[in-house]
């Protein structure tokens, strides 16, 4: 008897749950929250039965399309003087119009080994539908996809890139075109020294330095032959720098050179080879004569070139 009194004291010590729908009337497809607030002493075990199960077990709804959007969940709100304030919430929706008597959600609790169900009141929900006047209703056209205007920020990098590429191509074309006309990039004429002038300058420098007098015959003859090879390469267009002396003379055979100039040049190249590769020391006279032989050849070849150019013009 004392135990029953104690149990009933404990059970009835809690407040009566406050349960309500946030809206008692909704449009079809709208959502509504069902909130239940209640208090329990600390340490009481609680368990919420899924509302879907409760709905399925209910016979009064008879298949009405009440949907559980978010099922029953219990949260602690506060804890005061050993009492927990709790709040159970779920979200419902309906896709049938009409008035529905919703069964109460089931929350089980157990105190000191004794289990029971929390007493919650069922709720009524009225689901309205949209009234369509079928006589005046006119459906709207489906709207096409919205087209947003292209912004400057989107286009600007591509425009700049195209301009840069065009500028580079133009600069390359101009450089090549100007180079062909012996002009620099800005259109100013570039003075290219004719090959015979370059050769004669080098030979004159060697003549004035007279390095053979200080035992540098090898450098002296290397300088003369290099100047001549460079000139021959520019004048006749074959790679004289990569040819041996005899190969150069062979290539000059058909160039209609004066016989004496050809023979002198041949002799000079042969002597240069001896100096360069056989430690030969030529006489002073040979050294003095080497430059005039080279100069004669350059002058003759240049004059020949001028005559050829004149003949071409006459043609």
């Amino acid at each position: 008897m004392a135990f029953l009194v104690m149990l009933s004291t404990t059970v009835f010590a809690q407040k009566v749950p406050k349960s309500y729908l946030t809206k008692d009337s909704v449009l079809i497809g709208d959502q509504v929250a069902w909130i239940t607030e209640f208090t329990f002493p600390e340490g009481v075990d609680l368990k919420a039965i899924p509302y879907k199960q409760t709905l399925a077990a209910d016979t009064t709804l008879r298949g009405a399309a009440i949907e559980v959007v978010k099922d029953l969940q219990i949260d602690s709100v506060s804890l005061k003087n050993g009492q927990r304030e709790l709040r159970a919430k779920m979200m419902l929706s309906a896709f049938d119009s009409g008035s529905f008597h919703l069964p109460a959600p089931v929350i089980l609790y157990s105190i000191e080994g004794m289990a029971d169900t929390l007493s919650i009141d069922p709720q009524d929900l009225y689901v309205n539908t949209i009234q369509i006047d079928t006589a005046s209703f006119k459906p709207y056209e489906i709207k096409a996809q919205e087209k947003y205007p292209i912004t400057v920020g989107e286009v600007l990098p591509w425009v700049l890139l195209a301009l840069a590429v065009a500028l580079i191509i133009w600069a390359i074309c101009r450089y090549i075109s100007m180079k062909r006309k012996n002009k620099n990039f800005f259109g100013k004429s570039v003075q290219v020294e004719p090959p015979h002038i370059t050769a004669l300058k080098k030979l004159e420098k060697l003549r004035l330095e007279k390095i053979w007098k200080v035992g540098k015959e090898k450098q002296y003859y290397t300088g003369i032959t290099d100047a001549l090879r460079n000139y021959i390469e520019s004048r006749y267009g074959f790679g004289a720098m990569e040819k041996t002396s005899s190969e150069i003379m062979d290539s000059l055979k058909d160039k209609k050179l004066d016989e004496k100039i050809f023979n002198d040049l041949d002799e000079m190249f042969a002597r240069a080879d001896l100096v360069k590769f056989a430690k030969y020391t030529p006489s002073e006279q040979d050294n003095e004569n080497a430059i005039p032989v080279a100069v004669n050849f350059v002058n003759f070849a240049y004059m020949q070139q001028l005559e050829e150019a004149k003949k071409e013009e006459v043609k």
Binding site: T244, S245, S246, E247, D273, L274, F277, A278, K279
Partner: peptide, 10 residues
């Protein structure tokens, strides 16, 4: 010849 010239190498 008592010395080598580039022609010999080639």
């Amino acid at each position: 010849r008592g010395y080598v010239i580039p022609e010999d190498v080639r």
